[in-house]
Design a protein around this nucleic acid. Structure first.
Length: 675
DNA sequence: AGTATCCGCATT
DNA sequence: AATGCGGATACT
């Protein structure tokens, strides 16, 4: 069984079978696909040097049996088989494309499996399937990951820019997927397909949605509250100063650590983004970045602190943007009816909120940071309102006498967010940085520093070198807040379902928006990606050049001159695409995505649970409750394993686990700002 | 423009 | 019951 598997050399020239790099004299190149193969790893190496020159690899000669073939000489039959498909009038464009793909990739079983899957499931298809199918379809043939900075060949296949460039650099001029010639222009100047960039970004987003059950927290009586902070009758005197909180828009529990992800933002499906601004603390609270509307620290002693606000309330604070020194709370006399008091009259201790911060320090939890315009001494504070600046870790904390003479708790915060800070023009977020030198820890007055706490254990939130991003290295602390039951569990289920639908339809809307034809502005049908990376419907593009021929006959004075090539410019840019127009290839991967998204949108539109007719919705939930979904996800998972080439299982599984392609090198080294 | 005062709300 | 890096207002 195993001996039958034949593998060529990979992009680096390494034989994928023996994993060594064979010398040139030990390689033989397929005369059809120009792929190099390691001679000693071939079951049937070419017997003579002469035969090596016309040798055809197993991929090109060993075509699937279902394909009608003449004699077994390979390349020529491939062409005739493709012609046979093109000539078959019973097939639609889409089926033809699929057949062609099957033919050249030799993945007939896989496609059959997909067909069966469709038949088996029929109307049971769920959006999750579509989204994971999307991820499968999009993977770059070189690195098996979602393409980073995707480029599309005129034959309609999509790859990472870096992978594609590597391939070209090796002198390859054929598409790895279909062996079509890559035009010189595409080879020398590949263009990013921006529609795909958006699609992939959204696909990643959806993937994180399906990756695991999202913790959805419903606030008590939240739905009864208005969208804005409001004043109760009793509190109307001081307006917003005494306002009650409006609706909480995010579904993270109040003791959620770290960034607020898109899954918990049913309204916008984008989560809380770094740099987001709010009018005041009440509005900031509604988006979950920092819940307490007066207190500067959100946390629980013995559990940890989730967020802090920098708003100039303590003169000992010291802000350097990427790091800052924060002062604990307390030490002030708030007796009487005071809420704040600038004057310190006793020492702060590591208790209550100060202790919560110390727990986050010891555990290395990510702490969300908001800066308020009230902080006047910092250059990093916003001019107006309150701004979310991302997550920081507390690397160290201690106590020392504050400016007012009494002891204060001190915390060293260092930024560790995957998004760049609002004040930088950096394209990327933080990298681990050495601890800043803190003056008060270096001074000779070190005796003033007491109760120093460093982190002993490895931090829960840390930088993953492989992934090139910060993530939970240990599971985040389990929420201690009980989910609030809304009385009727069906209500809760239903609202959860509605939230999930809203999330999905927002993904779809955005995707469809990205996929509109540049000519008709409608969602593309039979999408074509030009070599200059613009996307059109096949019909629109053909229509734009209707009646124009590639060459123009010229005649003067009765004698005919040499015919001249007609220049045909891309409808969106001044690139001559006349050669490309002669053989338009639909970007099938793109088409499949559009098709599945359209289908989902229609399903949602027909879904009786989408409109709130109560009984229908309740019934719908009965039929399609969570356990069913999970089973389906498991099935999808199993299918994936079956589909994968046994040799590639290990790699593919590794790739599936990560939520982003580990192609940091491409990201880091490119100068172009494409995202 | 800065600040003292006051009090409602959310959370511990 | 106690605490708290809000916010409008009236005043310097």
């Amino acid at each position: 069984m195993d001996h039958a598997i034949q593998l060529p050399c990979d992009g680096d020239g390494l034989c994928m079978k023996c994993k060594t790099k064979p010398p040139t004299e030990e390689t033989v190149t397929c005369c059809t696909c120009i792929t190099p193969w390691h001679v000693s790893c071939l079951i049937e190496p070419p017997p003579t040097i002469a035969s090596a020159l016309v040798w055809v690899c197993t991929d090109c000669s060993g075509l699937p049996e279902s394909v009608p073939l003449g004699n077994a000489t390979g390349g020529g039959d491939l062409v005739s088989a493709i012609r046979a498909i093109e000539a078959d009038e019973t097939l639609t464009e889409r089926e033809k494309a699929r057949k062609r793909q099957e033919l050249v990739s030799g993945r007939v079983e896989e496609e059959d499996e997909e067909e069966k899957k469709k038949k088996r499931k029929g109307k049971e298809r769920t959006s999750e399937d579509d989204v994971s199918a999307l991820l499968d379809k999009f993977s770059c043939s070189f690195c098996m990951q979602l393409p980073e900075r995707p480029v599309s060949t005129p034959c309609g296949h999509n790859f990472c820019l870096a992978c594609f460039e590597k391939w070209i650099k090796q002198g390859k001029r054929t598409c790895i997927k279909c062996r079509n010639i890559i035009p010189a222009k595409m080879a020398s100047q590949p263009r990013i397909n921006s529609a795909l960039v958006a699609a992939i970004r959204m696909a990643k987003l959806s993937k994180s949605t399906i990756a695991g059950p999202t913790e959805v927290h419903q606030y008590k009586q939240n739905e009864d509250r208005p969208d804005k902070a409001y004043t109760t009758e009793r509190a109307q005197k001081a307006g917003k100063a005494n306002a009650a909180s409006g609706k909480i828009f995010v579904t993270v529990p109040p003791d959620h650590f770290g960034p607020i992800p898109a899954e918990n933002d049913p309204q916008r499906h984008q989560g809380v983004l770094v740099g987001e601004c709010w009018e005041d603390r009440m509005e900031c609270r509604q988006w979950g970045a920092h819940l307490p509307h007066v207190s500067g620290i959100a946390g629980q002693s013995g559990y940890g602190a989730q967020s802090v606000a920098l708003s100039g309330g303590y003169q000992d604070d010291e802000d350097h943007g990427e790091w800052f020194l924060y002062t604990g709370s307390g030490g002030r006399d708030l007796s009487g009816n005071k809420r704040t008091n600038k004057d310190q009259s006793f020492d702060q201790k590591f208790e209550k909120m100060n202790e919560a911060l110390r727990v986050s320090c010891k555990k290395g939890y990510p702490v969300r940071v908001v800066r308020s315009h009230k902080e006047k001494r910092s250059s990093y504070a916003p001019e107006k309102g309150v701004r979310y600046d991302g997550v920081y870790r507390i690397e160290k904390c201690w106590r020392k006498p504050g400016i007012q003479g009494f002891k204060v708790c001190r915390y060293l915060f260092v930024r560790c967010d995957n998004e760049p800070a609002p004040w930088t023009s950096d394209e990327y977020g933080d990298r681990p940085r050495p601890l800043p030198s803190v003056k008060e820890l270096k001074d000779k007055k070190l005796k003033d520093i007491t109760d120093t706490t460093d982190r002993k254990e490895s931090p829960s939130w840390d930088f993953d070198e492989e992934d090139g991003r910060w993530k939970w290295k240990k599971p985040p602390p389990l929420s201690q807040k009980r989910r609030v039951e809304t009385g009727n569990p069906e209500d809760w289920k239903r609202s959860r379902k509605i939230i999930r639908q809203a999330q999905k339809s927002s993904v779809r809307d955005k995707l469809l928006k990205e996929f509109s034809c540049l000519i008709c502005s409608q969602v593309m049908s039979l999408p074509i990606t030009t070599p200059c990376a613009h996307n059109f419907c096949k019909v629109c593009l053909e229509g734009a050049f209707a009646g124009k021929t590639l060459v123009r006959e010229r005649s003067r004075g009765g004698r005919s001159l040499r015919s001249q090539k007609n220049i045909m410019l891309c409808p969106s840019c001044p690139t001559d695409i006349s050669d490309f127009l002669q053989n338009l290839q639909v970007n099938r991967e793109l088409m499949d995505v559009i098709e599945s998204l359209k289908r989902e949108t229609e399903e949602i539109a027909e879904d009786p649970a989408a409109d709130l007719s109560e009984e229908e919705a309740a019934n719908e939930i009965e039929e399609n409750s969570d356990p069913a979904d999970e089973t389906e996800a498991e099935r999808a998972c199993k299918r994936k394993k079956v589909d994968t080439n046994p040799e590639g299982v290990k790699e593919a599984e590794g790739a599936q686990k990560e939520d982003s392609p580990s192609s940091t090198l491409q990201i880091q080294t490119s100068d172009e700002d494409l995202y």
